[in-house]
Each structure stands twice: as structure tokens, then as C-alpha cells.
Design a binder for these strands. Sequence first.
DNA 1: GTGTAGACTAAGGTCGACA
DNA 2: ATGTCGACCTTAGTCTACA
Lengths: 79, 79
Amino acid sequence: MSPEEAFGFILKSARSKKGLSQEQLALNCDLDRTFISMLERGQRQPSLTSILAISTSLEIPANELIRQTLEIMDESYKT
Amino acid sequence: MSPEEAFGFILKSARSKKGLSQEQLALNCDLDRTFISMLERGQRQPSLTSILAISTSLEIPANELIRQTLEIMDESYKT
DNA sequence: GTGTAGACTAAGGTCGACA
DNA sequence: ATGTCGACCTTAGTCTACA
């Protein structure tokens, strides 16, 4: 599992858990809705500032987002 | 302190601590030496994959790098 | 060993529209 | 509410070279 895919997966599940739509999240973190969409599907990767903006909007520390990303990259590696 | 500046500061201190030159680090994580230089001075920001590559080379988990970055952003905010 | 500069290409990120 | 497409602008990241 690539970093993009892993991050996208984490992003989507965290967003869903918060009950936010892609639109709401995008508005909240000042990014484009279509870009959030591509991130979640692993077609793009975020820059540092995007990671921070998203983590703020999700109220999840950026390091925690990254930790979870690494975690599922690790898990898929074991398989 | 901007995210770029904070990350650059953490990067430089972590690299120095490991006794690596910018050249050695760049070679190790497959990034350009001049790009590492700009990162350390906060003139550029890394993408997710660059963060992961750098953290691997520094043998510091990416989430820890981010945690330290947030930490000094926070500290400078208090001042 | 590092900073900078210029030129380049790949990719980040925006925007409007339509299914 | 989400995916996609096309066009667009900005910036990540490379490379050569010189102080």
C-alpha cells in the first residue's frame, strides 16, 4: 500500500467518523473539494501544510494522522 | 513560526544529531541536496512522501518528526 | 559542506461543469 | 454528496554551476 493510498484511507475513515462530508471538510480546511476527493482515493498526496490543515479540521493531531498512516502501510506490508 | 520553518528547524537539528551532512542525507533518502538545503531553511515544504523518505533516513518515525514540528510551532506561538 | 541562482518537469492545488 | 474531466496556476523536486 502506497503512502498516498494509506493516507487516503485514514483520511476517509477519520472524516466519516466525524460525520463530515467532503464538502464540509474542504470548506473547513480551506482546500478544494475535488482535491479532498482525490486524496481519499489515493490519487494525490498532501503537502505538509495540507496535512496540518486537514488534521486541524478533523481535530486529530497531525502526528496521529501520520502514525495511523504508517500503521496501515505496515499492516499491508505484512500481508 | 510557519510549518515550513518549524519542519526545517527540526530537520536540521535531527540531521546534525545523527552526524550526517546534507549531502549524505540527500543521497540516503533519494532527494536533491539543494532541496534539503531549502527545506532546512524553511524555503520549501515537503510532501508526504518526502517526509516519509526523510524520516526513514533519519531513523525517526515520521509521526515523531511531525510531533516535534507541531511542538515548536506551539512554543513559538506562546511567545 | 552549504547557500544560491536559473531553468526545467512533475505534481500540488484551484475552479467550473456535469453525471 | 461524490467522482471525473479539462483547463489552469503554483510549487515540489531535479540538475548544473559557482561562490
